[in-house]
């Protein structure tokens, strides 16, 4: 369930970047403050462990299909939420860069969907509450199952929200939900089962590992509530800032919703939506956050976007686009030839 750059609008991607960057900064500060320098190598190798173990498929009993561990909940149990958040975020960054899972803009979304939700909701609010400090058989299983399912349901829901709000996909909100949630119910159950199994294994073999993880970090309700309120505030501010620029026309959810509810005439390529979309997108280019501020070419942008898109211009556009593309490929090819020779 990796979100991809291609499905995102800059506003949604940017908001999630801000949220994730803020959480990572918060988690980093917490881990630094914990003054437990054993954690630095432990976080590193456990993240590598999750990465490696994700690649081992196993058959799911009674289904004939196979699954693999995602590992967020397991890391939270072993490391506590803050260190686990950094560890799982690092796994997602490596996946994005080496396997092209997701993308750079989508990193914010992916770390949020697959890391932050599990570490700051699934683990402290569900797993901890059910399992308590000394996980026994049934309570451990119940805790891991519920936490796994809830985290994955929330994660899947976040994917749906991010996708529909971006408006690149035409998939209606409701159909997308109906597709995503049941699949992730199954994945969540498997995740819960394996996590419980591995924790039980460790508990049997070397209980002291879990002991110190459980007692080392007293988790009051207050910090978690703070985190969640903080997160919500950051999200609201970021989304607010970003959408303020987009307020002349809704570029995301409302627009998709409008489509779903049958205002099909909006969807046409005529001067209406398309040019307004352009304006919106150009305005988003002025956003003060992250990489957006590099863009400084507004007046021209407004000019081009105000001219209605006619068949002629779009054919011309296609011809020109292909030409530039071929030119680019030619340059690349020439450079490659050149750099192929030892300089």
């Amino acid at each position: 369930m990796h979100m991809a750059d291609a499905l995102l609008s800059p506003a949604v991607g940017g908001t999630m970047w801000v949220v994730t960057a803020a959480t990572t900064a918060y988690a980093s500060r917490k881990v630094r403050k914990s003054l437990d320098d054993r954690k630095i190598p432990l976080m590193g190798v456990l993240a590598a462990f999750v990465f490696a173990i994700q690649m081992i498929n196993f058959s799911i009993p009674g289904t004939g299909s196979s699954g693999h561990l995602l590992g967020g909940l397991l890391l939270a149990i072993l490391l506590g939420p803050d260190a686990a958040c950094l560890a799982i975020a690092s796994v997602i960054v490596v996946q994005a860069l080496f396997f092209a899972d997701g993308g750079l803009l989508a990193l914010g979304c992916n770390i949020f969907n697959m890391g932050i939700i599990g570490c700051y909701i699934g683990y402290p609010l569900i797993y901890k509450k059910i399992a308590g400090n000394s996980p026994s058989g049934t309570r451990l299983l119940a805790a891991a199952l519920v936490a796994g399912v809830v985290s994955l349901q929330l994660g899947a829901f976040a994917v749906v929200l991010e996708t529909t709000m971006s408006g690149i996909s035409e998939l209606p909100f409701s159909s997308f939900i109906i597709m995503m949630q049941p699949i992730h119910l199954a994945i969540g159950i498997v995740e819960g089962l394996i996590t419980a199994g591995i924790v039980a294994f460790i508990w049997k073999a070397r209980p002291e590992i879990l002991d110190c993880a459980a007692t080392d970090r007293p988790l009051g309700d207050l910090p978690i509530k703070k985190v969640l309120t903080g997160l919500a505030t950051v999200a609201v501010i970021a989304a607010g800032t970003l959408s303020w620029f987009a307020s002349s026309h809704p570029d995301g959810l409302e627009w998709s919703l409008a489509k779903v509810t049958g205002h099909e005439e909006l969807a046409g390529p005529g001067d209406g939506v398309h040019s307004v979309m352009e304006k919106v997108q150009d305005k988003t280019a002025f956003m003060p956050d992250y990489g957006f501020k590099e863009k400084t070419a507004a007046p021209e942008a407004a000019d081009t976007s105000s001219s209605p898109v006619s068949l002629g211009t779009s054919t011309a556009g296609l011809v020109g686009g292909v030409m530039v593309m071929l030119l680019g490929l030619g340059i690349g090819f020439a450079l490659k030839k050149k750099s192929g020779n030892p300089a």
């Binding site: 280019a285 863009k295 011309a316 556009g317 020109g320 530039v324």
Partner: peptide, 14 residues
């Protein structure tokens, strides 16, 4: 992003 280079070039070519 801001100027329609492709369109300009295409119109020119056509």
């Amino acid at each position: 992003r801001s100027a329609d280079i492709a369109g300009l070039l295409g119109r020119l070519l056509m």
